[in-house]
Design a protein around this nucleic acid. Structure first.
Lengths: 188, 188
DNA sequence: GTTCTACCTTTGCCCAAGCAACTATACGCA
DNA sequence: TGCGTATAGTTGCTTGGGCAAAGGTAGAAC
């Protein structure tokens, strides 16, 4: 049978990428777990910590992570219970609410980040000579921009090629509404 | 507040990697979903298709995927129900059983692989010039080897650090390599 | 103002998967 | 031969997270 179909170099490439992800993820998860956090929760903390005002609307949090909005609702539930973040009503749109990282959440991050950075260096960045790393990061940036599910807040427009994200129907295409550009974060 | 802690280039690097994974994964999942497969199920089919005899022991399947053994039991349950694979008793060790890909499973793979390869090319390999791609693959191989293939199954709580205990080596899975050393096949 | 449409978040229901406990072997050793 | 320990796979229980539908709200059209 078409056995070389199964040995196509593209498959090998993709397989390699996913294996690396699995490996890194396992290392990081183990560390985070020791701090009582799941990878998803860590990502939420990081996103909030790096956002202006230390806050994000639930929907934006969803589009920046790999979660659905209901997934965000639930993770925010847990983390609010644990006092790492809190909800805050959006003054300009009563449908929305912000997730805000608390001091406790920031402290948690500051506690575990050094260890986390060491892990990244140990298993990822430190594995490669500087110039190779640069090439890799460059490549990742290229691919990220292509595949871009809307990871960054100031979403770029006009890429004209947006596919369904997530496991939903391959035909769905939910665009970040133009509404988003209007909503400037008002400091409180 | 240590704001540059949150902007460490290592974090950016890791973030990029994970964002790319999220993006690729979403694209691939959408396609597979259209064929009635989850990414995990696809990986199981691929692993089996590429294994000698088109089969793997449940445990080996677990260590090659990111699943626990119970996860493998369940995914094999589903796929056996759907006739993509079947269980086969291991003649030399009655504790073990093999998962074997069926003709139907192979056909399924052959149907969707061309489309899948196109996706890989569109969003990953095709995004980079050949020499950069080579560098990237080289880097991925380095990291994969460091982080070790088949990063075990548990996100076990607070384990700290546990390297491969030199047991199951996903590499030289030559064949009926049931228990490390050669051993007599005890017929019953 | 009223109504229609588009959105935001949460909830009900369900499935996938992990851990731990359990069963059945396998093999070393006295 | 029988016991002790290690391994393979399955199952009970629980949790995380997705989809779809349900409330609330914002604007636009009229």
């Amino acid at each position: 049978m078409s056995d070389d179909l199964f040995d196509d170099p593209r498959l090998t490439a993709a397989g390699l990428f996913f294996e690396v992800h699995t490996g890194l993820n396992a290392r990081f998860a183990a560390q985070l777990c020791g701090h009582g956090l799941s990878p998803v929760e860590f990502e939420v903390l990081m996103r909030l910590a790096r956002s202006p005002g230390h806050q994000l609307r639930m929907t934006d949090l969803a589009s920046q992570t790999s979660l659905s909005t209901s997934g965000v609702t639930r993770v925010v539930d847990r983390m609010e219970r644990d006092r790492y973040i809190m909800r805050r009503a959006c003054p300009s749109d009563r449908r929305s609410s912000y997730a805000v990282i608390t001091q406790s959440g920031l402290t948690k991050l500051e506690q575990l980040l050094p260890e986390h950075l060491a892990l990244i260096e140990q298993w990822f960045t430190g594995q490669l000579p500087a110039d190779q790393l640069d090439t890799v990061l460059d490549a990742l940036r290229t691919i990220r921009d292509a595949v871009h599910p809307g990871a960054t807040a100031g979403s770029s427009a006009g890429d004209g090629e947006r596919a369904a994200q997530g496991r939903s129907r391959p035909e769905e295409r939910g665009e970040p509404s133009s509404d988003a550009s209007e909503r400037v974060v008002v400091e409180v």
